[in-house]
Design a protein around this nucleic acid. Structure first.
Lengths: 379, 379
DNA sequence: TTGTATGCGTTATCAA
DNA sequence: TTGATAACGCATACAA
């Protein structure tokens, strides 16, 4: 590859000063039309391309790139989210660098460091399952950071001491509004909203966009109960994951279980992949030990449906996260649907607002979920 | 955000020269341990982060970033591909910037220009449907470019004159090997392989990774014919898309139709989304005008299954591209499966090889497809 | 082993 | 309106 021409080359070819070319390239209006056209000619003839990397090292300038750290771009949940972020950023002139952490804390840390070294303007991050590496403390002062899907710091006080604090939260009305709930630290106490169980109500470190995981799971579980289910399987990924803990908490709340107790009315199975989920369900199907399934993520839903299909039988089922196959099988699979696109858009706007200079205290936005009933919740 | 500290700051704090810090940061071994530890201390105390953007403007250095231009990251086909590219690049220390062109030629051009301005080290691109903007001519001399999923220049000589050249290609043996076919211009003529119909056998402009679209479509169509289908619907996206033209060509070849003729034994329907595809199928279902469906992409497959499910009936169906729901419905949906992960990996390796200095003439790699039969091909 | 001086491609300052 | 010059943060000759 030949060394690409620089502004200096263009300036020489056009017989003008370097600065004039710079002005032209940056779209300045106050340029002699004669010079401008000579510059334009030189640019096309030499094949000059503006070097944003070089421009970005000047103080006050940047490459207009945002980093996005998710767990796996191949998962439709994340790819739809990434696409939504990309779209919003693109409309504002930003590019997106997406990386997959594979739920590995070390890799996560490595990727964040790399993106910072690359001097991205902002960071949208789905925090790793065990935030012991404290990457956020380093990153947050350097550039705007937004947490997506999960909060940055573990909200639970400590993994060991689990004293569920106050009196059991009064069941919130299962409102069906579509507006996001805003939970700012500077509490405007008028908007009624489901409180995250076990969540300390203190200020988040960074802007945070979450779904109402607990509320969605609770609604789904109640629906299964309403149709007569008594021994519901909670089928999901590791409870080390924030979303899983929240969904499990909502599940237990619907069952009327003490969040801390270990009542075996709530059987919990862990599966990282759809195949594992299918195995679990297949193994349980004939036993009578369960009479319904709450699938806590899209892979679990897929696995459960797969097991049902192969066995030629089924149990009442509701999944968390909508998925493509949900409408293609009979009965249709009922789900707790998140507005993934809105989550991405909200996160992107949060970074953009900070980049535009706004500096309000960090806010947590909790997006409502929607219970979509398609028939699979019935016996 | 405070101005981040530079190497100069670190050098001052550690009481050493700038260059020594540079060495330390770049992992040089020949440093006095005493100085090294002083530098290390200064780095952590100041919170210094290496600035790769600044480093990358030095000659011979780069930011180690690759650009990927696809049509829509939200489509599982592309997101799985992107993930595969990301993984391979990541193993080699590169980051990936993925952008979605939305199949819009102007937007495509804009994005490519932006990525070049950003000084990415290489470009993996799924070319736009009508490559009239000639972006490749500008880009290719500047940095390694790899075409993925579609060739860079239109292979068809011209949209108007369609003289199918030589005698009808002898039907290639439907080999089931898994190794990719290599079609280099410096023809090693031993490996038997399906020739792209209508494809000029001249040298590609850039390394190109394709799937055997025509061969896969032909095999699928033959399978439908074998089970008695006579009026097969070709349901896909616009024939302006290379992959659609190829799949349609394979479809017609299986039907024994002259590639140029307009025999209405081959009914073709265009649908950009799954919903549109479902509408088309629903409208045709009762009419008896078709007795089988070849769904030419994953959205068409989804739409067809949706239509079948809603109507409570079905027709023999084979789709192009595997999709999640294919195994979850009964009968399972038969598909022509591409090895998407391999396509991404191959493309990534192609860029990396060029970046490593290799300069063989550009090669076209055609990946075999695999006909996966699950039952939906039966009447 | 360490330091000094210079340049990478660009933009900002300030004078012409 | 235009141009000479000095940064920006970093890395490489070359000297010490």
């Amino acid at each position: 590859m030949p060394k690409p021409p620089t502004m200096k080359d263009v300036a020489a070819a056009a017989g003008v000063a370097l600065k004039t070319v710079s002005r032209h390239v940056n779209g300045a209006t106050n340029i002699d039309p004669a010079l401008a056209s000579r510059i334009a000619t030189a640019i096309t003839e030499l094949g000059y391309r503006h070097n944003l990397a070089a421009a970005s090292i000047r103080p006050g300038r940047s490459a207009k790139v945002i980093g996005l750290v998710i767990s796996d771009l191949a998962n439709p949940y994340w790819s739809v989210l990434a696409r939504s972020v990309e779209r919003t950023l693109s409309e504002n002139g930003y590019l997106l660098m997406t990386v997959s952490s594979e739920e590995d804390a070390d890799r996560h840390r490595l990727l964040v460091d790399r993106l910072i070294a690359q001097r991205v303007d902002g960071l949208i991050v789905s925090p790793p399952r065990r935030d012991t590496t404290g990457w956020a403390a380093d990153a947050a002062p350097l550039l705007p950071v937004v947490a997506i899907d999960r909060p940055l710091a573990p909200l639970l006080p400590s993994p060991t001491d689990a004293h569920p604090a106050a009196a059991p939260t009064p069941t919130p009305p299962a409102a069906e509004a579509s507006a996001p709930l805003l939970t700012s630290p500077g509490a405007d106490a008028d908007a009624p909203h489901p409180t995250q169980p076990g969540a300390a109500a203190d200020a988040p470190l960074v802007d945070t966009i979450l779904a109402d995981n607990a509320g969605g799971a609770e609604a789904a579980t109640r629906e299964l109960l309403r149709h007569g289910a008594r021994r519901i399987l909670f089928l999901g990924d590791s409870l080390e994951l924030y979303t899983m803990r929240e969904r499990n908490a909502g599940f237990r709340r619907a069952l009327g279980l003490d969040p801390a107790s270990d009542d075996d009315r709530a059987s919990v199975a862990t599966a990282h992949t759809a195949a594992e989920a299918a195995e679990v369900v297949t193994a349980l199907l004939g036993t009578g030990r369960i009479d319904a399934v709450f699938a806590a993520n899209n892979r679990a839903s897929t696995g459960a449906v797969d097991a049902f299909t192969r066995a030629g039988t089924r149990l009442p089922l509701i999944g968390f996260d909508d998925f493509e196959a949900a409408t293609l099988v009979r009965p249709g699979i009922s789900v707790v649907a998140q507005d993934v696109a809105q989550m991405g858009e909200t996160a992107a706007h949060a970074v953009l607002a900070r980049l535009a200079g706004e500096t309000p205290p960090p806010t947590t936005t909790t997006l409502r979920t929607r219970l979509v009933l398609r028939g699979s919740e019935l016996p």
